[in-house]
Design a protein around this nucleic acid. Structure first.
Lengths: 210, 210
DNA sequence: TTCATGACATACGCAGGCGTATCGAACGCG
DNA sequence: CGCGTTCGATACGCCTGCGTATGTCATGAA
């Protein structure tokens, strides 16, 4: 519902720089940074390089634009529907929900992160990671944790958050689905969010076998 | 102790196929699968393509050899020093320790996983992930969890395990170090390994086996 | 010594991607 | 209507990597 297919001749008759940037993001999600190649992208958009080099001075500029677009979209829908949630517990829950909602977004992040040897990409990935971590950190602080504990727990939660996307991609058949996923999800929430009133050790209630 | 620098003229005077495979793994760890390119690798090894095409029919064969080598090394040092540990709790602890021990191994996995669009790579990555997950799953079963709970907890733990490597790479400055890391580590263990007894009590060997 | 083979080096053709240069068509407007 | 700006097509040269074909040189068996 978000990513409109902006193929050739979609918007009026001419492409804009943002069309190219969006296509670049699609390419990254599908094939990594190396897939951001001018001529293949042009073919995919139904135009030729001539068009590209009118909008951008070179490939690097496209990558740059794509990264900017990504960062914008990232922060936009990170804020959307979370910022106005007053309860810090629910805020974290929503963040986790969002994390597992969009498979594509996860792939995109992973692909970008994999390309963070590229200095430009690395900077953006580090910035984005830092922002997410900081936000989570604040949520944990708001839960009543000390700064120190909040730092540990937020890092922990974020690692799990990222790791889930990774596992989902690398071992899709092993990743829980449907009802089991919902249970898995609840387990994570129970475990990763020390609720006000409890301490750092979550309750342990392992139910009996099937 | 394992990866010897096998640059040119290291082993006697001639290279072997395994030299090439090891160099390919290094290249993957450093620059992703795309970095496995014949001519650059040859330069790095101080030879020319002529050598390469004597040992391998084509690039794909090199990638294949590298993947095999990786899988071998993976399973070898996964088994090493863990298999003979009788206490399942300690087994999991050791797995986690190992995970955070070798930064290079983590990078290698992440780089391979990022390239799992390539069918050959994908197969290997999925196999490796599945093996690790299954092993963790068995450890959790040995802890006394039901099969169902063991599945949830092992997936959870593995996601965190992978996620840590990712965070360590993508937000190195935010990842805990030194004393803080040791605390972080203990928090993860405490949280991710439901122990049958209390918390601070030493080991409680529930199951012998093995 | 001869010579076959192992382990390379050298030289080539080819494909694909980058970037440039030039050309053309559709407006927008005065 | 004329004309510049916008947007894109075509055609070119360059580089890098793949793969092949062939040359070369040391060495160990005959």
């Amino acid at each position: 519902m978000n990513v409109q297919r902006l193929d050739r001749a979609a918007r009026g008759r001419n492409l804009s720089a943002e069309h190219w940037a969006q296509a670049a993001l699609d390419a990254i999600a599908a094939g990594g940074l190396e897939a951001v190649a001018v001529e293949p992208l042009a073919r995919r958009l139904g135009v030729t390089k001539g068009s590209f080099y009118w909008h951008f001075p070179n490939r690097e500029a496209l990558v740059h634009a794509a990264l900017q677009l990504w960062e914008k979209q990232e922060t936009e829908d990170a804020v959307a529907g979370v910022e106005q949630e007053p309860d810090p517990y629910e805020r974290i829950v929503k963040l986790f929900k969002r994390a597992n909602a969009s498979y594509r977004a996860g792939r995109l992040y992973l692909a970008l992160a994999a390309a963070s040897d590229d200095p430009a990409v690395g900077r953006v990935v580090r910035r984005a990671s830092a922002r997410r971590l900081d936000y989570l950190y604040k949520c944990y602080c708001a839960l009543g944790l000390s700064e120190h504990d909040a730092r540990l727990w937020s890092t922990f939660a974020y690692a799990t958050y990222i790791g889930n996307q990774q596992v989902h991609r690398d071992a899709p058949d092993r990743f829980p689905e449907g009802a089991e996923f919902r249970e898995y999800f609840k387990l994570m929430l129970r475990t990763l969010i020390p609720r006000p009133g409890g301490d750092s050790a979550p309750s342990r209630q392992t139910v009996a076998a099937k």
